[in-house]
């Protein structure tokens, strides 16, 4: 073993002092609550004491996956998040690409516009969408007047409505990630393709699209995790009618106070997101190792 000189000792002392507060705060207000929730998800609910810790049981987890109500929640969450992610990708890819063509001034302004859903209360913007999407609202009127539909589409309390607000709320994330990856494509590749005789269309499909695949994957996974975690916009648009995991977690405390079952549901949700984050991480590392 190497002996610890006075410098090494003081270095580790310094590190401990610098990190002490952060570690303390995270232990008490992040790790503690998560572990406490995890621990209690293995017990029964008790109407008087909230949690009955006399028997260890898996029944909360079983319930999440087998009870029709919660099963619907899990399935809906996946359907809605997947659809919102795909739509977000399709809607935002052209914008992200367009932004790479802009000069710095125009880019600053468009970035600002793109970021607005992130910087404003999602509750309020979602509600604003709701006023537009009522059966007699502007959107339905417009669609009926140009003859695309004959009956108004119902958005409140439907999966379509939830998907639309999710797309709106998490477009900034998708757009920024896509834009960053498109920005990283060396313009020389595009020039090379054009010199070799590719037209704009071919250049796009053969060069730009394949080279932005890492961005597409990263943006999609990020958007998916944001969607599946999201509770506010789906709640405004879907109420308790569209059953979703995140909304049900909130329900357990606001309506039933069933902490153990709510915890189990939250743990399932957390695990899904953690898995996604892990996938992003390993993809990112792969990219770094590959070099650009």
């Amino acid at each position: 073993m190497k002996k610890l000189g006075p410098f090494r000792l003081s270095n580790s002392a310094k590190i401990i002092v610098l990190l002490l507060l952060a570690v303390l705060v995270y232990a008490l207000f992040f790790l503690g609550p998560l572990l406490w929730m995890f621990y209690n998800s293995f017990f029964r609910w008790d109407p008087l004491r909230l949690v009955d810790r006399s028997v260890v049981t898996m029944e909360n987890y079983l319930k999440v996956f087998t009870h029709p109500l919660y099963q619907t929640g899990v399935i809906n969450s996946f359907i809605v998040s997947t659809a919102a992610t795909l739509l977000s990708l399709v809607f935002n890819f052209p914008v992200a690409y367009y932004m790479t063509k802009l000069k710095s001034q125009a880019r600053a302004i468009t970035t600002m516009i793109i970021l607005t859903p992130m910087m404003t209360l999602s509750l309020v913007t979602s509600y604003a969408w709701l006023t537009l999407l009522t059966p007699g609202g502007l959107v339905n009127q417009f669609l009926m007047s140009i003859g695309i539909i004959s009956e108004p589409i119902i958005f409140w309390g439907t999966r379509i409505g939830v998907i639309l607000v999710l797309v709106y709320s998490f477009s900034p994330h998708m757009t920024l990630v896509l834009n960053a990856s498109l920005e990283n494509i060396d313009p020389n590749y595009i020039k090379a393709a054009q010199i070799l005789g590719a037209n704009r269309f071919q250049t796009f499909y053969k060069v730009i699209l394949p080279m932005s695949v890492p961005g597409i994957v990263a943006g999609s996974i990020l958007t998916f995790t944001m969607c599946i975690s999201s509770f506010l916009s789906p709640y405004v648009m879907g109420g308790r009618v569209v059953k979703l995991m995140a909304v049900q977690v909130f329900d357990f405390i606001s309506v039933q106070l069933n902490f153990p079952l709510g915890s189990a549901m939250a743990i399932v949700l957390l695990s899904v997101v953690l898995l996604m984050v892990y996938v992003i991480r390993s993809l990112a590392e792969k990219k770094f190792r590959g070099g650009t």
Partner: peptide, 26 residues
Amino acid sequence: IDSFITAPLTLPMVGLGLGLLFFFSS
């Protein structure tokens, strides 16, 4: 520690909220 510090932003806020409420009640 580095990845712990950014973790709260990537995890579902409802999960974190429920955990905090549950933790503070005890």
